[in-house]
């Protein structure tokens, strides 16, 4: 009781203190943000990226890592196009950063009219790579491994429904891979957001999905859905019974980046500041716990390492999109 009352007083104090702090100028020699930092989210409220940003914001604020607040702003429009254009227009701005996904590669490739060159953006830090697994409902007692899955999906032909996020999204790339690798003809039905996709599977409105662990975790823990295989190089600790596709002799590995990127032309001092800040966030207990819980992979990547990673990933996506016929 005493403890909770104290925390309530703390809440009141912090509201007041943060109001005062926001008005103070930065002290010290190294570059520090002098006004609230705009933290653009390339996706809508409530999705996986949005949740991660709100956690990052929470870590920065609760551990007093920065002198100013970080304010999330959602720009989900045009599969990230709106966010990319917004950041591109903020050339030279030291107070705008963005949390990005794989649409960072695919959207500029598919919409060249936007005039986005991701190599001009400022690399800050890759915080994680999210993984993908193949899921079915536990009602399907006949499906316990990929071989069963292939048999069942083949039998149903194009009546087998694979739910996923938008067309040409990550889920679509993986579905295409499965169709090709196993000679299937699954029907891809796009839904808005991974959470909705997970629910369609749990409600038996879809036959399979390729969700991230975080999206299926609730249903998985309740025994409603099960994972058959992982699109990772090695098995995930959370899902020890799900083999990798590599083990099944299909060499396919796919990740979703969870990366912080700065506006193009950000000053080197500012870029350095954000790199240090997000390195600290990366090493915090809260972020590490989140990584474990959501089965996130991929270590910290900064500076030119991150830029090289982007270039490689962009080329991979270009090939994939071309193979799908999404670009010419």
């Amino acid at each position: 009781m005493i403890k909770s009352r104290r925390s309530f007083t703390k809440l009141v104090c912090i509201i007041g203190a943060s109001a005062i702090l926001a008005g103070l100028p930065a002290i010290g020699q190294a570059w520090e943000p002098i006004k609230p930092v705009e933290f653009v989210v390339m996706a809508g409220k409530g999705g996986g990226a949005d949740k991660a940003v709100r956690l990052l914001q929470n870590i920065i604020a609760s551990e007093n890592m920065a002198p100013v607040p970080f304010t999330p702003i959602n720009k989900p429009g045009g599969s990230g196009a709106e966010a990319l254009v917004h950041l591109n227009d903020k050339k030279g701005d030291n107070h705008t950063i963005m949390f990005t996904l794989n649409s960072f590669y695919t959207t500029p490739l598919r919409q060249p009219k936007l005039g986005i060159d991701i190599t001009t953006f400022t690399p800050v830090a890759r915080m994680a790579e999210d993984t993908f697994l193949l899921w079915v409902n536990t009602d399907r007692k006949d499906i316990n491994n990929v071989a069963d899955f292939v048999k069942a999906a083949k039998a149903k032909g194009n009546q087998w429904i694979m739910a996923g996020t938008g067309k040409n999204s990550e889920d679509n790339l993986l579905t295409d891979f499965l169709n090709k690798a196993y000679g299937l003809n699954m029907k891809y039905v796009p839904y808005k957001g991974g959470g909705k996709v997970a629910k369609e599977l749990a409600g038996n409105n879809a036959d399979s999905t390729v969700n991230n662990p975080s999206e299926q975790l609730g249903f998985y823990e309740a025994g409603v859905t099960k994972a058959l295989a992982a699109f990772t190089p090695v098995r995930l600790p959370l899902f020890p019974d799900a083999p990798t596709f590599r083990e099944l002799d299909k060499d396919f590995v796919y990740f979703m980046q969870r990366t912080v990127v700065g506006a193009p032309g950000m000053s080197p001092e500012a870029a350095h500041y954000y790199k240090d800040l997000f390195t600290e966030v990366f090493n915090s207990d809260k972020w590490q716990q989140y990584r474990t819980k959501k089965s996130l992979q991929g270590g910290l990547l900064t500076d030119h390492h991150l830029m090289e990673y982007w270039k490689i990933e962009r080329d991979i996506h270009e090939v994939m999109l071309r193979n799908m016929g999404a670009i010419k």
Binding site: P76, G77, G78, S79, A81, R110, Q111, T165, G166, K167, N168, S169, N172, P190, Y191, K192, A326
Partner: peptide, 10 residues
């Protein structure tokens, strides 16, 4: 207006 999730196109 905006983004069509089914076709994945603006």
């Amino acid at each position: 207006v905006g983004f069509d999730i089914i076709s994945g196109e603006p």
